[in-house]
Design a protein around this nucleic acid. Sequence first.
DNA 1: CTCTGTTCCTGGCAGC
DNA 2: TGCTGCCAGGAACAGA
Length: 293
Amino acid sequence: MRAGLAPAVTGARVVSVTVLDDRALTRHRGAASDFESALTGRVLTGAVRRGKFLWLPIETDAAARAVVGHLGMSGQLLLRAPGAPAERHERVRIELAHPRHGELAVVFADQRTFGSLAIDDLVPTIDGAAGGFGSDVALVPVQAAHIARDPLDPAFDEALFRRRVGASASAVKRVLLDQTTVSGIGNIYADESLWAARVHPETPSRALATRTVTRLLDEVRVVLERALAEGGTSFDAQYVNVNGQAGYFAHSLRAYGRTGQPCPRCGTPILRVSFTNRSSHFCPRCQRRRGAR
DNA sequence: CTCTGTTCCTGGCAGC
DNA sequence: TGCTGCCAGGAACAGA
């Protein structure tokens, strides 16, 4: 989605902003009118991502700011022609004028309203490296500053990741889902990475051998790279790119959502168990539970 | 301090 | 056919 937005928004001026549902601004400090006025007339300078946060920096002569978005479960950022009919679950529309591409609309649509947009200040990154993918600027929105980099980021702090994994008594899957330790991993990619690394999701994190942590991190990277290459994981119309097209990674899932179906490695039926109000899917034979618990 | 459970929301679906 | 209830998920937050 970031890659799709970048060429369309970079250098574009905001012509108008329409907030149709205030719940789309739950991350925004201030009223919808403030969101609209902070953006209208400004030029956007790119599209940047860290983990599951996405932001569009705003060209200003004052303090650095950006439109920050988190898609939650069902959020979408779609590129549409100006004046295009309202999308189902449309919450915010930003009309843009691009010097080369002409006029277009960025539409934020979100069925379950876990996602939201905000205007946020940009602050320097702690490590001095670029804030995220899509920019060389060492700035990050306040809202995303506490989030770790994702493991594909060249500045990902692998030593910190290893320390956190080695220190925690929690289930390793919970550590993978903790965005302050490593970002970009949700329930689906956690299950897929654990299956690929042959690690039981409830293994106490600190009980993992060093070589197992290495293998797990390697597999996380393989899963994320492949998911990005295939445009994400689409189960339904909610998971789409900026043109509303579905990603293909759902066809590559080995464990997630495959309850009762044979493990692609050994044929044992995949198990589904309840885990922190979610579900874990894993192979009971390939992913043996290790360590005291 | 670390860790865990709850909460927000909507639409698709199973079951009656 | 139409109703009810369950489920999916990310992250902030409260509380242990």
